[in-house]
C-alpha cells in the first residue's frame, strides 16, 4: 500500500465533512473520486496531503504512520521535519495550478528539487526538461506562467509535481478551472501517466475520463464513501440509490 487512510474524521466548525472514511491506494492504481460538491472529496485529498489536519483516524504512507489517534482519542501528527519527509512521497496538482508567477517554467520545476531535495542543478534541469518534453511544452521552459494558457499552466503544474519524483500523485479537480477546449490536453497527459502505471488519485467531475482511466472509482456523498468498485460496477451497475441519482444527472 502506498497510501492507507483509516477512519478519517474531519469537522469544520462542528460540521462533519468526513465521517469515518477508510481507503487505500496500491502501487500503480488509478483511483477516481467522484461525487456532488460538498461531498468531502476535496477535503479528503487535502487531509491526505496534510493541508488540513484530521480530527480522528490514521494516515500511512509506504506503511509508515504520519498521523494516528492514540488511546486517549488525541490525534497525533509526526513532527514538522518528519512531515516534510512524508511530503516527498506525494505530489498534488491543484485546481488553480498555483504555479510560482515570479519563476520561469523551468525554475518552477527545478527550484523545489534543488532546495528541498538537495539535488544538483544539472540533475534537476535534466529531469525537468524530460518532463516538459513529455508534456509537450519544452519550448516554454524560459517563459513565465502568465504567458501560458490555462491548459499549459496545468501541464506545468503536473510536471512540477512529477519533478519531485513522488510515489503517488493527487489531482484536485485538475480541469475545473479550464475552458472545455483546454481540458482535453490535460486529461490526455493524466491518461498517459496512467498508462505508465503512475499511482494516482483524481478528484474529478469528468465522468467519461474517470470511467476510461481508473482502476477503481469511489463515489462520495455527505462525507462518506457511498459506493466503490471498478468503473464498470460503479458507472454501469450502481447498487446504491444515491449513486444512481447522481449519475442520472450526467446522463441527461
Amino acid at each position: 500500500m502506498i497510501l492507507q487512510m483509516n477512519n478519517i474524521q474531519k469537522q469544520f466548525d462542528g460540521l462533519e465533512v468526513l465521517k469515518d472514511i477508510s481507503f487505500g491506494v496500491d502501487s500503480g492504481e488509478v483511483v477516481s473520486i467522484i461525487g456532488p460538491s460538498g461531498s468531502g472529496k476535496s477535503t479528503l485529498l487535502r487531509c491526505a496531503t496534510f493541508l488540513e489536519t484530521i480530527d480522528g483516524g490514521e494516515i500511512q504512507y509506504m506503511g509508515e504512520k504520519a498521523v494516528h489517534t492514540d488511546e486517549s482519542g488525541r490525534t497525533v501528527y509526526v513532527n514538522q521535519k518528519e512531515l516534510r519527509r512524508f511530503r516527498s512521497y506525494y505530489g498534488l496538482v491543484f485546481q488553480q495550478f498555483n504555479l510560482f508567477p515570479h519563476y520561469s517554467i523551468l525554475r518552477n520545476l527545478i527550484d523545489a528539487p534543488m532546495v528541498t531535495q538537495h539535488r544538483s542543478r544539472e540533475e534537476a534541469t535534466e529531469t525537468a526538461m524530460d518532463l516538459l518534453t513529455k508534456m509537450g511544452i519544452a519550448d516554454k521552459a524560459d517563459a513565465y506562467p502568465f504567458q501560458l494558457s490555462g491548459g499549459q499552466q496545468q501541464r506545468v503544474a503536473i510536471a512540477r509535481a512529477l519533478a519531485m519524483k513522488p510515489e503517488i500523485l493527487f489531482f484536485d479537480e485538475p480541469t475545473s478551472a479550464l475552458d472545455p477546449e483546454l481540458t482535453g490536453e490535460v486529461l490526455k497527459v493524466i491518461r498517459q501517466l496512467a498508462e505508465e502505471n503512475m499511482t494516482m488519485v483524481v478528484v474529478t467531475h469528468e465522468m467519461a475520463f474517470a470511467k476510461a482511466v481508473s482502476n477503481r472509482v469511489l463515489f462520495m456523498a455527505g462525507g462518506v464513501v457511498v459506493e466503490q468498485g471498478t468503473p464498470e460496477q460503479v458507472f454501469d451497475n450502481p447498487q446504491e440509490e444515491r449513486t444512481k441519482q447522481f449519475l442520472r444527472v450526467f446522463e441527461r
Partner: peptide, 15 residues
C-alpha cells in the same frame, strides 16, 4: 498573496 502559493510551497516540501 493567494493562499494557494503557500499550499503549493508546503506540498513541495519548502520550510
Amino acid at each position: 498573496i493567494p493562499v494557494g502559493q503557500y499550499e503549493a510551497a508546503e506540498v513541495l516540501g519548502y520550510t
